[in-house]
């Protein structure tokens, strides 16, 4: 018996064992989709497509679910999650757009223009920013930025102008977007810098040798060629932004409210709550079946969002391949 164990593994056995472990990853994904979908089903079933619409106050609906007890009726599943979906899209899109611009500029700076000493400083800083836990970002957001915005930036007049609709206290869309941007920018910078470094020098040299300045050469040749890597960074960072729960729940005000761009600047100061933040905040009440189904439904949506992003990035790379841009 011991002898058999001590025998070197045969190739076949090693391959099968390793392969089985590798396949466990697929099993996990399959289970994840299946379990979450099953748990989410009652919520979708009860609401139909109106799940995605705005119908009444979403916070009241969620409260009702908590109070509905162990055997909810179909009416207790009532949910119109649009404000949460909208908040998720809003924070994600805004912060991803800001982070894209910010990270592209910073990456070009790092790769091409930064003086050597500054580069030595900035590279570890980017890695550090990427490593800071989201709860620390949330803490700084809620203890530093929120009081500043609530105290200095939002004038009493502005608060009064919307006081019958929503309370402006500083926890707001703008804080969420700013902090989220700071959180996801390092991820994008890391991917973009790697991508820019992997572009053959000879392309940039070829452009520079034609009398094009380094800035234009960078944008028209190197950045163009690095688009797949940049896309990959955007996708990774966006996935992070969609799913960010803790930080958003700390700084965004935790109101099932849909900020209205028609409010002008006030729009930026209005509170909101994303789906991920809702899940983390209401997870205490997850034993209420109606609440459980609603939260799993949101989780399913987040999962789907990740899938869409992956497919989107894959599609975006396709036309570039024609011109020899490698992924």
């Amino acid at each position: 018996m011991l002898d058999r164990l001590r025998q070197p593994w045969t190739d076949r056995r090693a391959e099968l064992t390793l392969g089985a472990l590798a396949c466990s990853v697929l099993l996990v994904i399959a289970f994840m989709i299946a379990f979450i979908a099953v748990k989410a089903w009652p919520s979708f079933n009860a609401n139909g497509l109106s799940w995605f619409s705005a119908k009444g106050n979403v916070d009241q609906q969620l409260d009702a679910m908590v109070n509905s007890g162990a055997n909810p009726t179909k009416a207790d599943y009532q949910l119109g999650a649009w404000p949460l979906i909208y908040a998720t899209l809003l924070t994600t899109v805004l912060s991803a757009a800001c982070a894209l611009v910010f990270s592209l500029l910073a990456s070009i700076f790092i790769v091409e223009f930064a003086p050597e000493r500054l580069r030595r400083l900035i590279v570890p800083i980017v890695r550090l920013l990427a490593a800071v836990p989201s709860v620390v970002y949330g803490l700084i957001g809620i203890l530093v930025i929120v009081p500043f915005i609530g105290g200095s930036l939002i004038s009493p007049g502005r608060k009064e102008s919307v006081q019958y609709v929503i309370q402006l206290s500083g926890t707001s869309l703008i804080v969420a977007v700013v902090v989220l941007t700071v959180m996801i920018t390092p991820i994008m910078i890391a991917m973009t810098v790697d991508g820019l470094h992997s572009i053959p020098r000879s392309w940039k040299e070829g452009a520079v040798a034609l009398g094009v300045n380094r800035w234009r050469a960078m944008w028209t040749v190197t950045v163009r060629a690095a688009r797949p890597a940049i896309m990959a960074g955007v996708v990774l960072a966006t996935a992070r932004a969609i799913g960010e729960a803790i930080m958003i729940s700390m700084v965004a005000g935790s109101k099932g409210f849909a900020p209205n761009p028609a409010d002008g600047i006030t729009f930026l100061f209005e509170p909101l709550r994303t789906m991920a933040a809702t899940i983390v905040e209401d997870s205490e009440s997850i034993n209420a079946p109606a609440m459980q189904a609603s939260l799993y439904a949101m989780a399913l949506l987040l999962l789907a969002g990740g899938f869409v992003l992956s497919i989107g990035s894959w599609l975006a790379k396709q036309p570039l391949k024609k011109y020899g841009v490698r992924s």
Binding site: P200, S202, G206, L210, G211, V212, R224, A225, G324
Partner: peptide, 21 residues
């Protein structure tokens, strides 16, 4: 320097066309 390189242009040892049309 860009003006100089516009006047003195170079073709490299390894062909290095840009990844465009």
């Amino acid at each position: 320097v860009t003006a100089l390189r516009r006047r003195v242009s170079m073709v490299f040892q390894q062909p290095n066309p840009f990844p465009m049309s």
